[in-house]
Amino acid sequence: MAYSGIGGQAVMEGVMMKNQDHYAVAVRKTNHEIVVEKKEYKGICPNKTIKKIPFVRGVINFIDSLVLGMSTLTFSASFFEEEEEQKVKSEKKEKAEMGITIAISVLIAVAVFMMIPFYASLFFQRFIKSETVIILIESVLRIAIFIGYVLLISRMEDIHRVFMYHGAEHKCINCIEHGLELNVENVKKSSKEHKRCGTSFLFFVLIITIILTLFIRVDSRILRMVLRLAIIPVVAGISYEILRLAGRSENIIINLLSKPGLWMQRLTTAEPDEEMIEVGIASVEAVFDWKEYIKTLKEDER
Rank of each mutant, 00 (worst) to 15 (best):
39 K>C: 02
111 A>M: 12
195 K>M: 04
256 L>W: 06
222 I>R: 04
108 I>D: 03
33 E>Y: 02
178 H>Q: 14
284 V>P: 00
248 R>Q: 15
247 G>S: 09
42 K>N: 13
270 A>Q: 11
88 V>G: 04
134 I>D: 07
18 K>Q: 14
133 V>D: 04
259 K>Q: 11
57 R>A: 10
82 E>R: 12
178 H>W: 02
232 I>Q: 01
261 G>F: 08
281 I>R: 10
196 R>D: 00
285 E>Q: 15
165 Y>E: 07
90 S>Q: 07
93 K>D: 11
7 G>T: 05
212 L>D: 06
272 P>Y: 03
297 L>Y: 02
175 C>E: 03
99 G>H: 00
238 I>E: 09
36 V>D: 10
37 E>M: 02
228 R>M: 12
252 I>M: 09
236 A>M: 14
241 E>P: 04
48 K>A: 14
211 I>C: 02
201 F>V: 06
28 R>A: 01
244 R>H: 13
207 I>N: 03
135 I>S: 05
233 P>Y: 07
31 N>C: 10
194 H>M: 05
269 T>S: 07
94 E>V: 13
286 A>M: 10
18 K>N: 09
34 I>W: 06
155 R>H: 07
255 N>Y: 08
200 S>K: 00
152 L>P: 03
190 S>V: 03
143 I>F: 15
272 P>A: 06
301 E>D: 13
158 D>I: 03
284 V>H: 05
101 T>S: 15
220 S>Y: 07
135 I>W: 04
126 R>F: 11
67 V>N: 01
18 K>D: 08
111 A>T: 15
20 Q>A: 13
37 E>H: 13
98 M>W: 04
240 Y>L: 03
16 M>K: 06
58 G>I: 04
81 E>N: 12
244 R>C: 09
267 L>D: 00
225 M>V: 05
185 E>V: 01
30 T>D: 14
245 L>F: 15
87 K>F: 10
242 I>W: 03
211 I>H: 02
293 Y>F: 15
191 S>F: 04
222 I>W: 11
259 K>N: 01
166 H>T: 12
258 S>Y: 06
2 A>N: 13
146 F>Q: 04
191 S>T: 04
286 A>Y: 00
43 G>W: 05
16 M>R: 03
23 Y>P: 07
236 A>F: 04
136 L>I: 15
135 I>T: 15
11 V>H: 04
52 K>Q: 14
35 V>H: 12
211 I>L: 14
159 I>W: 03
168 A>K: 08
243 L>V: 11
297 L>S: 07
238 I>A: 00
58 G>R: 02
249 S>V: 05
252 I>R: 11
147 I>M: 11
280 G>P: 08
54 P>D: 06
295 K>P: 06
91 E>Y: 10
75 F>G: 02
80 F>S: 12
220 S>W: 09
28 R>D: 06
237 G>D: 10
276 M>R: 08
110 V>R: 08
54 P>N: 05
152 L>C: 11
286 A>Q: 03
18 K>I: 08
9 Q>T: 09
291 K>N: 10
142 R>E: 12
77 A>E: 15
41 Y>C: 08
44 I>D: 00
171 K>I: 06
160 H>G: 02
301 E>I: 00
203 F>K: 00
234 V>T: 14
136 L>N: 12
20 Q>R: 14
96 A>H: 09
274 E>C: 07
249 S>A: 11
88 V>K: 13
143 I>M: 10
39 K>G: 00
30 T>F: 01
81 E>T: 10
